[in-house]
Simulated scan of single mutants.
Amino acid sequence: MPHDRLQALRSAPLPRSEQVLLLVDVINPMDFPAADDLLPHAWEAAQRVARLKKKLAAQGTVVVYANDNYGTWHSEFRDILAACQTQPGERGAIARLLTPTPDDLVILKPQHSAFHSTPLRHLLTQMHTRRLVIAGWAADMCVMLSATDARMLGYDVWVPRDCIAAETPERYDLAVRQLGGPFDCSVRAAFRARASR
């Protein structure tokens, strides 16, 4: 086996990161019945997610992508990323804007929650993580289920309300109320709203 391929098999120590930014399903082909309803909200949120990611990464926060495998059990994340990046319009723009860096970690998930049947909990334990910042879509499904699982496992959770998206304002509002109420997550915005002119 060539030396450069052997290098790829060498284990690298995980960084210690008391806080982790968990990006849920942000690399997404938006190929489902209500995708056109979600897409404009996701595009607006994606621009703030990119800013938040840059800010937190500069502070040493590890970024973990928890992405759906979309039922393609033979595929790897890079295949999903490449397919999404070539999508037209905002679908491809989101994937290009939020492409992981070489320092980011990636896991694939088979169900809605980032914790269900994935190595996420093991990964967070190895990094001594205590707090999760969770962003992505959809707010009322994969984000909510990931956040509620995180709370049940004892993590402090912040779901920035301006870095998530849902198919309708009603579903978004419901998710924010549930997360900030009975599930005891912080839902404060990551950025101040711009004053209207």
Results as ranks from 00 to 15, higher is better:
D104I: 13
D162F: 01
Q85E: 08
R96V: 07
A114D: 00
D140F: 06
A150T: 03
L98I: 06
R78H: 14
A166H: 09
I134H: 06
I134A: 12
T148C: 07
W73I: 00
W158S: 07
A138H: 10
E90K: 11
T99I: 09
A83E: 07
H116K: 10
G89W: 13
V159F: 00
M141N: 12
N67F: 04
Y155Q: 01
N67Y: 02
S75P: 01
D68W: 13
S113Y: 06
T148F: 03
I134L: 09
V159K: 00
H122R: 14
Q111S: 15
Y155V: 03
A83T: 08
P88T: 02
I164R: 02
N69Q: 05
P88K: 04
T148R: 12
V157D: 00
S75H: 08
L81T: 03
H74P: 00
R151L: 08
R131M: 03
M152Q: 10
A166L: 08
A150H: 00
G89C: 12
E90H: 08
I80K: 12
S113Q: 09
A114R: 09
A166M: 06
T148P: 01
L108M: 11
L132K: 05
A139P: 04
Q111A: 15
G136C: 13
D140L: 04
I164M: 11
T72K: 07
L81M: 06
L98D: 03
G136P: 05
F77Q: 14
A66P: 01
P160L: 01
D104V: 06
R161I: 02
A66K: 00
A135F: 02
I134P: 03
E167F: 02
P110T: 13
V157P: 00
V159G: 00
V159C: 01
L105S: 14
R121M: 01
Q87F: 02
L123H: 12
C84S: 15
R130C: 12
P119D: 14
L145C: 04
A138M: 14
K109G: 09
L120Q: 05
W73P: 02
P88V: 06
A83G: 05
D68I: 04
A66M: 01
D68Q: 09
E167H: 04
T86Y: 09
C84Q: 11
W158V: 06
D103S: 15
H128E: 11
D149M: 13
R91L: 10
W137S: 07
I107G: 09
P160I: 00
L145T: 06
P110H: 03
D140I: 10
L123G: 07
P100Y: 14
A166I: 04
T118S: 06
L153M: 12
M144A: 10
N69L: 05
K109S: 05
V157F: 00
Q85L: 11
F115Y: 13
Q111K: 15
A93M: 10
A150S: 09
K109T: 02
L123V: 10
